[in-house]
Amino acid sequence: MTSLPGGSDHGCSATEPHPPVCARCGIPADGLQPTTWTCSVENGIRQFFCDACSRENLRAIEGRLDSSGW
């Protein structure tokens, strides 16, 4: 998981009342807790990214770039 610098992963729980949707490609998660997905807080907004989009953009994620920079 990624979080804001100096912060915690507060708010990145996948326990939403409905499955999250990938913020990059729009695919819905198979369940309520997509363990292979990435959670990111960008500009104070929690976003989830599927495992495929996470793998494709690993360098950007590691560099802590907002998804708009991908």
Score class of each variant (00 low, 15 high):
Met1His: 07
Met1Ile: 06
Met1Gln: 06
Ser3Met: 09
Pro5Asn: 10
Pro5Tyr: 05
Pro5Lys: 13
Gly7His: 06
Gly7Ser: 14
Gly7Leu: 05
Gly7Val: 02
Ser8Met: 05
Asp9Asn: 12
His10Ala: 13
Ser13Gly: 15
Ser13Lys: 09
Ser13Tyr: 09
Ala14Tyr: 10
Glu16Arg: 15
Glu16Asp: 13
Glu16Val: 04
Pro17Ser: 13
His18Asp: 08
Pro20Asn: 04
Val21Trp: 02
Cys22Arg: 01
Ala23Leu: 02
Arg24Ile: 14
Arg24Pro: 00
Cys25Gly: 01
Cys25Asn: 01
Ile27Val: 15
Ile27Lys: 13
Pro28Tyr: 02
Pro28Asn: 04
Ala29Val: 00
Asp30Trp: 07
Gly31Tyr: 04
Gly31Cys: 07
Gly31Ile: 01
Leu32Thr: 08
Gln33Asp: 12
Pro34Asn: 05
Thr35Pro: 00
Thr36Met: 09
Trp37Glu: 02
Trp37Pro: 02
Thr38Gly: 02
Thr38Leu: 15
Thr38Gln: 09
Thr38Lys: 03
Cys39Tyr: 08
Ser40Asp: 15
Ser40Glu: 12
Val41His: 01
Glu42Asn: 03
Glu42Asp: 09
Asn43Gln: 13
Gly44Arg: 03
Arg46Cys: 04
Arg46Lys: 13
Phe49Lys: 01
Cys50Gln: 03
Asp51Gln: 11
Ala52Trp: 04
Ala52Glu: 14
Cys53Gln: 00
Cys53Ser: 02
Arg55Gly: 04
Glu56Thr: 05
Asn57Val: 06
Leu58Val: 07
Leu58Trp: 04
Leu58Asn: 08
Ala60Ile: 03
Ile61Tyr: 00
Ile61Cys: 00
Ile61Gln: 00
Ile61Thr: 00
Gly63Tyr: 06
Gly63Lys: 13
Asp66Asn: 10
Ser67His: 15
Ser67Trp: 15
Ser68Met: 05
Ser68Tyr: 09
Gly69Phe: 09
Gly69Pro: 03
Trp70Asp: 02
